[in-house]
Design a protein around this nucleic acid. Structure first.
Lengths: 329, 329
DNA sequence: TTGAAAGCGCTAACAG
DNA sequence: CTGTTAGCGCTTTCAA
C-alpha cells in the first residue's frame, strides 16, 4: 500500500510531479513521466481516493433515491444513470427508502456529510420540504417523479399525454366502458394520468363514470388483484381497464384469469412502464413505455452539471404505446 | 458549511474537544459538551466524512457485485446486506457487472483506490483469479455463488440438497420423467444441482436419461422459453421439469401455455429462488426458497468482521421448498 | 478534562 | 518542466 510520497522517492521526483503524471493534465517531460510510471508499477501503487476526495472536497458519489429496489420500473433508469455516471467517474449509491422518512434521512445525511455530491430522487413519497431545503445547498435532480413547482430541476414524461394515448387506444379498438386503476392522487402524476383518461373519454363523448375510477395506495401486484376483484363485481362491468403501473395490470390479469374470464376477449388490459416482466405474462401486456434509460442518462447529466455549478433546465421526454396481446390478443 | 475549526472557535474550545464530543467516546465535561453542542447547532455544522475517512483510512462503503440489477433473486439479499450495513454505519455501492470483465474492473478499482472497504461478490461469472488476488489485501466475501476452494469466505445454501429436495417432490407426486433445466456447468452450483437431481432419481431407481438434461447460457425468461420448446419436441416427453431458476421456469410456463398444454396437468414445473414474481404467474410457481434476506445479513456481518481484521468462517444456510399450483394444480 | 500539534494522501498555487 | 509548501477536515497521541 504505497502512497504518493514513496512513489516520488522511488522515482526521484517530487510528489507534485507524481500527481501531475497521475492526473495527466499538466505537462510533464516524457522522461520523468516514464520514471514515475516505472515507480508506480514497481510499487504497485494505487492512488487513494480518500486523499484526493478530501483535497478536492468531493466524493464523486451520487445518490439515487428509490422507494423500492424490487420495483422493476427503476432498472433501466438506474442503468442509464449508472452508465452516464461511470463515464464521468462517478459511482452511484442506490438508496432504498421504503418510502420511510427515517430511511430517507439516513441518506440525506450522507450528502450533508459530504459522503455524496448530489441526489437523483425517484421517490414520489419523498419529503418535499426537506428536499427543497437540501436543494439550496446541494445538487438535486428529480427523476420521473416531481412534486411540481418546488424549483428543483426534473426529468419526466408528460403523464397526461401518455395516459390519454393509452385510453385512446382502448377507445379506438371499440371499448367504451373503461376502468382506471390509478394510484393515490396525492401524487402529481396520478392527477395527470386521470386527466389524460378523462380527456380521451370526453373527446369521444363518452360520459365519465366515477364508479370506474379506482385508487390504490401502492402500485403493486396485490393492489392490482384486489382492485380487479372490485371491478369484476361492478353491476355494469367495464370491458377494459387501464392501470397506471404494469404491476397493477399484472395483478389484474391474474385476477381476471382466476375469475375464469379471458383477456382481452372479456376484459382488455393496459399497463404502464413496460417493465421486463410485462412481456412474460399470459397474455403479454399492452403498456406505455417511458424512455427509462434515456431518463436515467439525462438525469445523471443534469446532476453532474449541477454539481459543477451550472444551471440546468428541466426536461420532458416522449413516451410510446406498446401494443401487445392484452388488448389485441 | 462550517468545519470543525469554526465550531471549536465558536465554542471557545479546541478542535480535539469538538472531535471528542462528536464521537462520544472520550470523556468530556458536561459543561463543555453543552457549549460544543450549542456551537454545532448555531453553525449548522455537519462533520465531513471526507476528513474523517482520510484520517481513519476507511471509506465505510462496501461494494456488492451482482451480474444484473434486474434479476429479482438479488433483491432480498441486497436488503439484508443493506440493513446490516446501515446498522454499522456502512453504505452500499451496488455494482452491476453485466458479467463483463471491464465493468468488474471498474469496481475492483474502487476498492484498490480505497473508495470501498470491501466486496460482497454475488456474481457467478466473477473473475476468480482477480478476486483471489484482491482477497489478499482487501476484505472479500462470496455470497450465494462461490468458486469453491479459493480460500474466500462464503455464505451459500447446499445446492445439491436443495435440488434433491425439489426433484424428490416431483417424484413423490407421481412423476418419473423429469427434465432438468440447468445452467452451464462451469458454475459450481450448476454441477451441484445436477448431482442433487441425479441422487433423487437414483434413490427411487429411476434411470437417468441424458436427453432430459438441458443447459442454458443464462438463467432468463427467454432461455426458459427456448429450452421448453426443445423439451416439448422430445419423442418421449417428460411430465415435469425442474428449472434451476424461477425466470427459466416462468419462461417454460409461458411456452407450455403457448403450446396449448396445461400446468401442472400436462407438465409440472418447479423453479428455484422464490422471486416475487413466482407468485404472480398463472399458475403460481412451486419453487425452492433460499433464505435470501438472511444470506444478506450474514454476508454483511462477515464482511464487516473481515474489514475489522477478524477471521471469519464460511456459512451454509438451509433452504425450503414452497409448493404451489405449478405442481399441485 | 482539555489543548497543541502531527499527519492521513492528495492537489494546486507559486516560485524557480 | 519541476519542486516546495500549504492545507483540505478530521482523529489521536502526548503533555499539561
Amino acid at each position: 500500500m504505497a502512497n504518493i510520497q514513496q512513489v516520488a522517492k522511488q522515482a526521484g521526483v517530487s510528489v507534485a510531479t507524481v500527481s501531475r503524471v497521475l492526473n495527466g493534465k499538466d505537462k510533464v517531460s516524457t522522461k520523468t513521466k516514464l520514471k514515475v510510471e516505472e515507480a508506480i508499477q514497481y510499487l504497485n501503487y494505487e492512488p487513494s481516493m480518500l486523499g484526493r476526495n478530501l483535497r478536492n472536497s468531493e466524493s464523486r458519489i451520487v445518490l439515487i433515491l428509490i422507494p423500492s429496489i424490487s420495483n422493476p420500473f427503476y432498472f433501466e433508469v438506474i442503468k442509464g444513470i449508472e452508465n452516464m455516471a461511470l463515464s464521468q467517474n462517478y459511482s452511484i449509491l442506490l438508496c432504498e427508502t421504503d418510502s420511510k422518512p427515517e430511511k430517507e434521512e439516513i441518506y440525506f445525511d450522507l450528502v450533508r456529510k459530504k459522503m455524496a455530491d448530489g441526489i437523483i430522487s425517484m421517490d414520489p413519497a419523498v419529503n418535499v420540504e426537506t428536499l427543497k431545503e437540501l436543494a439550496e445547498n446541494y445538487a438535486i435532480i428529480q427523476c420521473s417523479e416531481y412534486g411540481g413547482g418546488i424549483g428543483i430541476p426534473y426529468v419526466t414524461i408528460d403523464s397526461e399525454e401518455a395516459s390519454y394515448h393509452a385510453v385512446k387506444h382502448l377507445i379506438q379498438i371499440g371499448h367504451r366502458k373503461i376502468a382506471l386503476m390509478n394510484s393515490d392522487e396525492k401524487f402529481l402524476y396520478a392527477r395527470e394520468r386521470r386527466m389524460g383518461y378523462e380527456r380521451a373519454l370526453q373527446e369521444r363523448g363518452i360520459p365519465l363514470d366515477g364508479e370506474y375510477i379506482f385508487y390504490t395506495q401502492e402500485l403493486g401486484f396485490e393492489q392490482g388483484q384486489q382492485t380487479m376483484k372490485k371491478i369484476l363485481q361492478l353491476q355494469d362491468r367495464p370491458t377494459a381497464v387501464f392501470a397506471v403501473s404494469d404491476l397493477l395490470a399484472i395483478g389484474a390479469l391474474k385476477e381476471i384469469n382466476a375469475a375464469g374470464l379471458h383477456v382481452p376477449g372479456d376484459m382488455a388490459v393496459v399497463g404502464f412502464d413496460k417493465i421486463d416482466f410485462s412481456n412474460m405474462t399470459n397474455p403479454a401486456l399492452t403498456t406505455v413505455a417511458q424512455p427509462m434509460y434515456k431518463m436515467g442518462t439525462v438525469a445523471a447529466r443534469m446532476l453532474i452539471e449541477k454539481i459543477q455549478g451550472k444551471t440546468v433546465d428541466s426536461v420532458v421526454l416522449g413516451h410510446e404505446l406498446v401494443i401487445r396481446e392484452s388488448t389485441t390478443g
